[in-house]
């Protein structure tokens, strides 16, 4: 499955090329920041009318990750919807698509800042979830340990033989793991920005998405 295997909080985890996290022992697939319905929200607010395909594209990728891992528990780590109205207004063909993915699987929606309330699409809605000693929540809390979160859309830059590569990435240190954004219409925040450099300890790694993903020492902005 071309993933990068690593250990975090005594759990054997795999970073997948798509930016999903696979926890084999729990048969759990975790994805963060899907931002479904972003194009709808922008058009509604009088902004640009972007190609309205990001839900389809995101679900297509999620669907292949589910097929490849045969996951039985899908955990969406917050900001799954760009806002609650976007979740409500999803076209029937898209909600059908989502429903077919959710069928016969355990599905957990973690609350995010964009979707701070339950949606009427099935699954379980939680503020956070603790599982085998690990806590899943949307935004990392400084001082917490064994915590898996999203929110920041981390990405990192690497210069190799004169070429600069910029990739979405996982960030991991002894206490926390931050997932990259999985949604199609999402940008990123470079991990050398103060917000991320302050959160991650010295010695943290950035796992750059690729096939397979590769870890590097996390580029920092405070050095």
């Amino acid at each position: 499955m071309n993933g990068h295997l690593f250990t975090f909080a005594n759990a054997a985890l795999t970073a997948l090329p798509s930016g999903a996290l696979w926890w084999e022992q729990e048969c759990l697939l975790c994805v963060s920041d899907l931002h479904l319905g972003k194009s709808d929200r922008m058009a509604r607010r009088g902004g640009p009318m972007l190609p309205p395909y990001e839900v389809l594209e995101t679900l297509d990728r999620l669907s292949s990750d589910i097929a490849a891992t045969a996951a039985t528990h899908i955990l969406c780590l917050g900001d799954s919807f760009d806002d609650l109205a976007a979740a409500r207004d999803m076209a029937p063909e898209l909600t059908d698509r989502l429903a077919s993915l959710m069928a016969a699987r355990r599905w957990t929606w973690i609350a995010g800042n964009h979707d701070p309330g339950p949606v009427d699409l099935g699954g379980t809605y939680r503020a956070e979830l603790a599982l085998s000693g690990v806590t899943f929540r949307h935004i990392a809390i400084p001082g917490e340990t064994a915590e898996i979160s999203g929110h920041y859309h981390p990405k990192a830059r690497l210069t190799a033989r004169g070429r600069t590569l910029s990739r979405r990435c996982f960030l991991v240190d002894a206490d926390r793991l931050i997932l990259p954004a999985y949604g199609t219409y999402t940008g990123g925040l470079y991990c050398d920005r103060p917000a991320l450099s302050a959160l991650m300890t010295v010695g943290a790694q950035a796992i750059l998405l690729g096939t397979p993903p590769r870890p590097i020492p996390m580029p920092r902005g405070d050095g």
Binding site: L158, T159, A160, R161, R163, L165, L208, G210, R214, P215, I216, P217
Partner: peptide
């Protein structure tokens, strides 16, 4: 290149 450089940095 990504593989090589990642390995070297680590």
């Amino acid at each position: 290149l990504l593989d090589e450089e990642a390995a070297r940095l680590m």
